[in-house]
Design a binder for these strands. Structure first.
Lengths: 101, 101
DNA sequence: GAGGATGATAACATATTCGTTATCGAAGGC
DNA sequence: GCCTTCGATAACGAATATGTTATCATCCTC
């Protein structure tokens, strides 16, 4: 192992600063949360990936890649799929992290 | 002219459904507003593009392209530049459009 | 079990972003 | 005037997202 630490879980890996920098970790957490909200929105509407593909203009494989976190979408792509779901993207001030976490 | 309409201003162009579809128009307005907020955030911090490039890891030409609307950034790039400015990106419900506009 | 719909994924071509390096004109301080 | 810093932009390669088409296993219904 690169630094001698035992890695048993993804959480171990993520919390290892020698493998994933704090900035990188924040970015990953951000993306996971963001895409998670996107998936929820689609499912709340009862839409399949194929149905959303038709009304958004973004193809089904692209939507699948996006939801499986195998790609980092461009903001216009994310907007295109969110808009028919009744959502948009906004820039908001960072909230302070809860002290215990 | 393609449809015989006289185009004198950018607004004319943008409001011409035969040239810019309503969906496309909304996407453009969205990006303009989003990037506008990003530029404001940087300037409120008193940071130059070069200074922001250093602390964000995104190079100055990329930041300039982004701010001049000559590129559609990926969400991780946008996040990287917003984070040192004290902002993040969120998915929010669409607001209804004011009826008079 | 046959059939339909689902999400995931492969393969390939195309389009676009981003890094890198360098330069430009404009604006401001000295 | 000289120098610095600013944002914008050009050129090019590398990396990556997206479109396109097709297929897969799974789940569900009939």
């Amino acid at each position: 192992m690169a630094n001698g630490k035992v890695i048993n879980t993804i959480t171990d890996y993520m919390n290892d600063d020698t493998r994933v920098s704090p900035a990188e970790r924040e970015r990953i957490n951000f993306e996971v949360a963001l895409i998670g909200k996107k998936i929820e929105a689609r499912e709340r509407k009862g839409l399949s990936q194929r149905a959303l593909a038709e009304i958004s203009g973004v193809k089904q494989p692209a939507i699948a890649r996006l939801e499986s976190l195998n790609a980092t979408p461009q903001i216009d792509t994310l907007f295109k799929v969110l808009h028919p779901l009744g959502y948009t993207i906004e820039i908001v001030p960072l909230r302070e992290k809860p002290s215990g976490v």
